[in-house]
Design a protein around this nucleic acid. Structure first.
Lengths: 159, 159
DNA sequence: ATGTAACTTTAAGTGCACTTTAAGTCAAGA
DNA sequence: TCTTGACTTAAAGTGCACTTAAAGTTACAT
């Protein structure tokens, strides 16, 4: 076996070890480093060496991506976590709660849309005037146009 | 006032009328046409003219995008809707239900992740061995690496 | 008839999150 | 020492969903 591969009890991880255990491709890890999401120390020969707590950090990033968060949002949340050591319990709880709020907001949004669609199924959505969803989406209405008339093909002029 | 702008009771809509009422930019409408999501008839002078039911179709696309669906998924769902006329109630109900299933699946996924994060907050996630989330994410596990060790920095070797 | 807003096209550009490529360097077993 | 896999870099490429630009045409009130 070549390089540092296999020394699983070592203090530092190589990029392929971190990749294998975090699920992020090596190229992704280099990219994360480029944009300042993670950092790496270097070996004598200029290869990246990651302290073990970096695995938690990368896992956190991957989990965020799975939740549909953008890297910039993840970066914002991670700004409260230390880059050079494992977080304390209090630090971790704060960060995790911030995410839970974002997830829950997204769930609310989807549930609202799901129930909109539900009523929509109920009414058949073939007539705007009889559709209870008429102007149901305030966020879109605030934008001026949006999905105000999700189903209708007539302007909101009563009569 | 120039062009067809303002004739809101007309049988056909211009691209800017459809844009204003659907919330999609004219460039987006042209793009949707390019990839076959919508179609347009043409005026004598080669300008796009949309039948009124096209508004429903575009609204459907926009709603799907808001739900986080990709255009290819939206296209798949819309394949069951007629391109040249308003859908019947039965057609609409089928399509809407297909979406509701997708939304609900996404909600389930997020709720699972939210509760994972919740337990995670509870345990502090500073020790893999004591963390109940250990291997909680089967989807990731199935992929080989994934977020199997969301929080830990040790391999899943008990003892 | 004229002015101008709205339209047309094709091609290139944008932002995100990466991946791939190319050319070269490092690490370690045989 | 040699070989080979793992690593390094910078730059270009990918896929998605559009937007912007440039150059020219159409529609319509006046």
């Amino acid at each position: 076996m070549a390089a540092a591969t296999g020394s699983s009890a070592a203090k530092f991880l190589t990029i392929s070890q971190l990749s294998a255990r975090s699920g992020a491709a090596p190229s992704a890890l280099r990219f994360y480093e480029q944009i300042g999401l993670i950092t790496a120390e270097r070996s004598a020969g200029n290869q990246r060496r990651y302290p073990r707590h970096m695995l938690r950090r990368v896992a956190f990033i991957r989990a965020g991506r799975q939740l549909g968060l953008e890297l910039r949002e993840i970066r914002a949340t991670m700004a409260s976590l230390p880059a050079d050591r494992a977080p304390t319990r209090a630090e971790w709880v704060r960060a995790a709660r911030a995410w839970q709020r974002q997830i829950d907001a997204r769930i609310d949004e989807l549930q609202r849309l799901s129930s909109t669609l539900g009523s929509c199924i109920g009414c058949g959505c073939l007539s705007l005037r009889r559709c209870g969803l008429y102007n149901a989406n305030d966020a879109a209405a605030a934008h001026g146009a949006g999905a105000r008339w999700l189903l209708g093909d007539e302007p909101p002029v009563p009569g």
